[in-house]
Amino acid sequence: MTQLSNLHEDMIHDCALDYYGKRLATCSSDKTIKIFEIDGQNHRLIETLRGHDGPVWQVSWAHPKFGNILASASYDGKVLIWREQQGQFVKLAEHANHHASVNAVHWAPHELGAILAAASSDGKVSVMELKDDGSWDTKIFSAHTIGCNAVSWAPATQAGSLVSTSGVSSNAVRRFVTGGSDNLVKIWTYNPELGTYTVDTTLDGHTDWVRDVAWAPSILPKSYIASASQDKSVIIWTADSPNGPWNKKVLQMDAVVWRVSWSLSGNVLAVSGGDNKVTLWKETLKGEWEKVSSVEE
C-alpha cells in the first residue's frame, strides 16, 4: 500500500488509474488536475493540468486506443478533454454545455467509440462523441430535475458474453445510468430513431440525493448497478437480463456514501463514505452482499 499525502493544496475530489494502472490522475478543489506515474511504491508527478475555473469534481481516462486522453468535469460547468502529446498534456477540447457544475464525467466502453457522458447540477446530461474527423457531436437532455450527480456507462457487450465484438456492432448497447438529486436512478438507452437517449427505467429507492452510480463490468451473466446515496445507503440493482426487472438490495452504511466503484472483473464493490472509510463488498452465492475487507485509513 502506498500512501501519497497532500498532493493538492485543497480537497481532492477524485482519483483515477488509467487503463494500464500506471498513471494516476487526481483532481481537486484547487482547480488543478495532477498526473502521476505510478511504479510500485514510487510515484512521480508528470504534470499539473490547469484550465478549470473551479474545483474539478471528476476525471476519467479514455481507452488507450484513442491515445492518452483524460476528461475532467468541474464546478465551473465545463468538461475539458486533455490529451498527451509528446510527453505533455494539452487541452484537446472544452465543452461548456452546462449551466451549472458538472458533477460527473465518464467515458463509454471503447467498443462504442470515443463517447463521453457528463452529468450536471443543472439537471442535464450531455453525451459528447468525438468523431474520426476530430469534431464533437453533443447531445444534451434533462435527466434529473434538480440536479444530476452521477453517470455510468453499461458495458458494451451484452451481459453474459465474455467476448466483445470489435467496434460498434449491433450487439453493442449504448446504455448508461444516472443518479440525481431527486433521489432517483435512471437508466438511459440510445434511441436511434430519436437520435437521443431516453429513459429506460427509473429506479426509486433512495431517500436522498444519489451521489454516485456505477454499472458493473460484465463477466457474470447478470447486470449489476450500484448507487450510492446521501441517505447513507448503497443499493445494488441486479437484473438477469438487460431489460429485465431490476431487483434491489440495500446495503446500509454508517455515513453518507459518496462513491461506488466496481472491480474490473466485476465481482467486488468498493464503497466510499463520508467518514473517509472505504469498504469492499462481495456477493455471496445466495445473493447477499458481505463486507470483504476495508481499506484502513
Binding site: M11, H13, D14, C15, A16, L17, S29, P55, W57, Y75, S101, N103, S121, R211, D212, W258, R259, S261, W262, S263, L264, V268, A270, V271, S272, G273, G274, D275, N276, K277, V278, V295
Partner: peptide
C-alpha cells in the same frame, strides 16, 4: 458538491 472521499479500481 464537494466529494470528500472516494475509491476506484
Amino acid at each position: 458538491l464537494k466529494r470528500p472521499a472516494g475509491a476506484t479500481f
